[in-house]
Design a protein around this nucleic acid. Structure first.
Lengths: 135, 135
DNA sequence: GACAAATGATACCGCGGTGGTATCATTTCT
DNA sequence: AGAAATGATACCACCGCGGTATCATTTGTC
């Protein structure tokens, strides 16, 4: 099981990298070189972050992306929501129509409780926290 | 995201049903009728539980399955391990070879911590707990 | 102005896991 | 004999994830 998809993982790494370079203009070529992440996929990821307002982009020669928000104001869970949708541990329990459980899911309560715990923790984590850790 | 697969979910429901019927002999037809779960899939699930020692089976006319363990001794996490493998929130971080993170995964520590929390909770849940809840 | 290097936008695709179904063999009660 | 059950196994469809490919556009450098 994966709490994070690669999209989210790459987004975190890219933003972390940019933050550590003091918000300089960074191209996917830079990220490819230093982080060894698949370039075309990275591009797509960064374009999403740009549309979501985390980055600005500069086209053309010497172009790239630039971080627009303070690391302390970028929460992991927001990135997860962008790339993975609303975080839930019990999709089948509530969303999908296949399930006939309705109100009879034996584990409804337990799963919900664990989900809340998880969300509580996720909401606390920011890019700034990750920078501190690696210092 | 799903913490539990349908396999696990169905196993829990079936065992719960059997426990509530005081360990009587139950056929997939019974489960189909009362729980409205897809019969052939259910069969496969029950066969696994039988091989794992949770159930015994009786073949032939009026045959079926019978619960072999006390509800308080059946832990949810064991069922999850049977049908889903070892529970982890960071498969990509450790198992898969694609990841070049090695020791550089920015979120390694956080994910691991949340995983431990989750496991701690999961280990406490037994079928007996679920029976109490619905009483 | 030509070219290279970058992003914008979009379409496409392969793989594996999940959630099943189908089939045939065997056992057992009526 | 036949129906009803499990045992064992093979097969399959869908979908999300992770990724590639392509073409258009912008922009600095020579």
């Amino acid at each position: 099981m994966n709490l994070l998809t690669r999209n989210t993982d790459y987004a975190v790494r890219a933003i972390l990298y940019m933050a550590q370079h003091d918000g300089a203009l960074i191209s996917t070529a830079d990220l490819d070189r230093d982080l060894k992440l698949p370039r075309p996929f990275m591009r797509k990821t960064l374009q999403v972050l740009q549309k979501q307002g985390y980055l600005t982009s500069v086209k053309g020669y010497k172009g790239g992306f630039q971080l627009q928000r303070k690391p302390s104001q970028i929460h992991l869970i927001e990135l997860m929501r962008i790339f993975q949708g609303e975080i839930s541990l019990g999709d089948c329990l509530f969303k999908k129509k296949i399930c006939h459980c309705v109100a009879t899911c034996p584990l409804r309560r337990e799963v919900k409780s664990m989900e809340e715990d998880l969300l509580r923790k996720l909401k606390k984590i920011t890019i700034a926290d990750l920078m501190k850790e690696r210092a």
